[in-house]
């Protein structure tokens, strides 16, 4: 394994985060804090408890997941799209690196940023609402698993996109709406029965439900089904990335 190459890509990508700290960390933290202020402290104070926890605490896992998904996709897609756009990708493609090593470098860096961001938001949430974490180890495992899976998804978008617009289309028009409708701010049991069934087709429901379980021990859908769905999505993304490198799709032709 070309560990020097993996390290070089990983550190190079992380260096970009430190250079753009305001955009990478501060912006999502501030916008998520605003959600806590508006939905948690202001509106949440006049709302009933959900699944036995205050509304402010209830939305913490969903908001972390919202930031985690969007930032994982954004970081990873930008990370690989930028060298494609600038033309510097030639160096990565001509280096003695396997596709797996390239993925570990780029996706690993994007996932690291997202996990750091998730933990910063978690700490920030503590400033606004009281909450507990019932299964901290599972919480961390799920945080890392989701960050890596969606960074991989972002990496695919970064290779697929042939313009800045396409880079934004999937996160803005698909992922964000699915996250909002995936139970970030409510339990799906609060929906009418028909909508509960329809909601189950939204994959983000499973992510938020399982993540919320790691906090409060309650979930809208079976936890193992959620973990299973995430792993299946991860494997599907790995399959697509593998095909992209094998065929040279938008990289080598």
């Amino acid at each position: 394994m070309n560990l020097y190459a993996v390290r070089a890509i990983y550190l190079f990508e992380l260096a970009r985060t430190w250079r753009t700290l305001l955009q990478s960390i501060a912006t999502p933290v501030i916008s998520t804090s605003l959600y806590f202020v508006v939905f948690g402290a202001a509106i949440g104070a006049s709302m009933n408890q959900v699944h036995g926890v205050s509304y402010g605490a209830f939305i913490v896992p969903g908001l972390i997941m919202l930031a985690l998904l969007t930032e994982s996709i954004s970081n990873a897609s930008f990370g690989i799209y930028m060298p494609r756009y600038a033309g510097t990708i030639y160096e990565v493609l001509s280096a003695p690196i396997s596709p797996l090593e390239i993925v570990i470098g780029y996706v690993g860096a994007a996932a690291t940023k997202s996990v750091i961001l998730g933990l910063v938001i978690l700490l920030t949430a503590g400033l606004f609402v009281d909450f507990e974490i019932a299964h901290p180890v599972w919480m961390l495992i799920y945080l890392v698993l989701t960050a890596f899976t969606f960074s991989l998804f972002g990496f695919i978008i970064g290779i697929w996109a042939d313009g800045w617009e396409k880079l934004q289309v999937v996160p803005a028009l698909i992922v964000t709406p699915l996250t909002f409708l995936g139970g970030s701010f409510y339990s799906i049991s609060m929906l009418p029965e028909v909508w509960q069934t329809i909601t189950l087709f939204n994959p983000v429901v499973y992510l938020i439900s399982a993540f919320r379980w790691t906090f409060y021990g309650v979930a809208d859908v079976n936890v193992w089904l959620s973990f299973g769905m995430t792993v299946v999505f991860l494997l599907a993304c790995l399959g697509v990335v593998s095909w992209m490198f094998k065929s040279g799709y938008r990289l080598k032709n």
Binding site: N2, Y4, P96
Partner: peptide
């Protein structure tokens, strides 16, 4: 930084 990156990329 960019020259250091290139060296690492080639496994050196």
């Amino acid at each position: 930084a960019t020259v250091k990156f290139s060296r690492g990329l080639f496994g050196k």
